[in-house]
Amino acid sequence: MSDIQETRNRVEIGELGRRLQRAHGEVWLHQVKGDPYADVLRGHAEDPHPGYERIRALGPLWRSSMGAWVTADHDLAGTLLGEAWPHGPVTGEDAHVPADDAGLGGDAAHYERLRALVETTLSPSAATAVCERVVHGLARSFNLVTDLAERVPVDLLAETFGLSAPHHWELTASCAAAGVVLDGLLCPQRLDVTRRAVTAVGRLRALLTPPDGHPAADTRELALLLATAGVRTAARLVASAVLAVVDHPEEWSRVADAPEHAALVVTEALRYDPPVQLHPMVARADVEFAGQRVPAGERVVVLVGAANRDPEVFADPDRFVTGRPAGVLVPALYHRVTLPFARAQAEAVIRALVAAGRRPHRSGPHLRSRRSPVTRHLLSCPLATG
């Protein structure tokens, strides 16, 4: 590396560090001043729902002192997550991580193309086979996160895109490092974490080459999006669904009697503990919602985790109950690609786990990552059978 390039890199790293430090300081300051949205963004609470309820009490659409419009209202959230108003993703310097490079900067038409491509690129039978293989290889004591939830989506991607063993290891490490992109859209990460994410996204772009017979550009973008955002989303949904049948024996029994019941377990997991708790968007034109004028360029954030527990819509919203009649809200844009990817694996894992006949139980406390208000990322959750 030349001296000029090394100097340029040091300047860029220094500027990134200052920007992250400034953003983190702003979140902390607004939280100290009592802004409940800033409190949620810090990602320190084990249970974010008390913070969600503080925001709900402020009205259907409330403007945080941080400048974002926030809603916990189910009906308004459903409108905002639809396509009937001009909005786009958080990109560029508005994000604290490389959102554009990680595949999160496209428009609705782009993600609709990728969603269609998922159906032809990722085989349901391959997903089932991967899930069954990983489940059958579990020891009597295992870590739900590292041994199952995070392993399944990485193994599926490696198999789909034909990666050899050395490249499989690199994929695992890169997906883990790049997984902060969803949380980094709203919550500034540490400098070292952000730098690793930038490097990992670059490695993933180089590593994931399209298989024969697919349009190279779209398939590469699909692979990148699934590796950066899809793996973290799938891991969270798999973990949430597994804990549902671990903590609720009646759900385990229902899946044992009727494997198709796994779909209802996953649907309720998407409501009760969704893998994407907050979904940010940017208004592309002046709009008005709930009597509030939202100028073009301002950020709008749907608290998905709160909207899916809206007591005006869901009876006894803090209980896990399968078969609820009301619709579950899910984010759009890039999540129209990552959530079907995640859901297929979560259902297959539940079926495989129940078919194996060994219902696990919690064998220790779980550990959750801080600064992860969007995904509430699990670091560890020990389970045991027998």
Rank of each mutant, 00 (worst) to 15 (best):
R151I: 00
A116C: 10
L144H: 00
S125D: 14
D147A: 05
H96A: 09
V118N: 11
V134Q: 05
A129D: 10
A109L: 15
H136N: 14
V135Y: 05
L144F: 00
L122Y: 04
R113T: 12
S123I: 06
T120W: 13
L144G: 01
R140F: 10
L117Y: 12
G92Y: 12
R113H: 13
D94E: 15
G92K: 14
S123E: 13
A139Q: 13
A99C: 08
F142M: 04
A102E: 11
R133D: 13
E119P: 02
P98Q: 12
G103P: 10
R151C: 00
G137A: 06
A95C: 11
R140V: 05
G106V: 08
R113W: 07
H96P: 08
S123T: 07
H96V: 09
L138F: 03
Y111K: 06
A116E: 15
L148Q: 00
A149Q: 00
T128Y: 02
D107I: 06
S123A: 11
R151N: 01
R115I: 06
L104A: 05
N143Y: 01
V130E: 10
L144P: 00
E132Y: 02
A95N: 07
R133V: 02
E150A: 05
Y111Q: 05
A129I: 00
S125V: 05
L122H: 05
V97Q: 11
D107V: 10
A149V: 01
S141K: 07
L117M: 15
H110E: 15
R133W: 04
E112G: 13
D147W: 03
E150W: 04
D101R: 15
A149N: 01
L148C: 02
R133F: 02
L117K: 09
S125T: 06
S141P: 00
H110Y: 12
C131F: 01
D101I: 09
V135S: 03
R113N: 11
N143F: 02
V135G: 02
D94K: 12
D107C: 06
E112M: 12
R151S: 03
S141Y: 02
A109H: 13
D100N: 15
G105V: 08
T146D: 10
G105Y: 06
T121L: 14
A108L: 14
R113A: 14
T128A: 13
A126T: 06
